[in-house]
């Protein structure tokens, strides 16, 4: 994370854009659940997609993660942690759901 002088990525627009996008990506899932607009399956899918996009919005507009400007070490740290989280959480869910069916716990 460089503390360079204000640049494109770090100006007012970045934070305001991020705010508006995040607002919309929050309103959509909340709205469709609160007003009961979809059945469970599709609702979960939209919640998941909106969440992932909103995380990316936060990373881009608030944390200024940018493939061109962010130092490589930072990107690698994020990617490696993300990869491990995927294995740990994915693996845990696979294992525990499998155990649920086999061991009825």
């Amino acid at each position: 994370m460089q503390d360079a002088a204000p640049s494109e990525t770090r100006d007012l627009r970045s934070y305001l854009t991020g705010f508006v996008l995040a607002l919309v990506l929050t309103a959509i899932p909340f709205g469709l659940v609160y007003f009961d607009l979809l059945s469970v399956g599709p609702a979960i899918a939209i919640i998941a997609v909106a969440a992932v996009i909103q995380v990316v919005v936060h990373l881009r507009f608030f944390l200024h993660i940018d493939f061109k400007r962010t130092p490589r070490d930072d990107l690698l740290a994020l990617a490696f942690a993300g990869f491990l989280i995927f294995i740990m959480v994915g693996g845990s869910l696979w294992i525990m759901i499998d155990l649920y069916y086999r061991m009825m716990i």
Partner: peptide, 8 residues
């Protein structure tokens, strides 16, 4: 031996 299925 905790009881996972064969695939796991």
């Amino acid at each position: 031996t905790m009881g996972s299925s064969a695939s796991v």
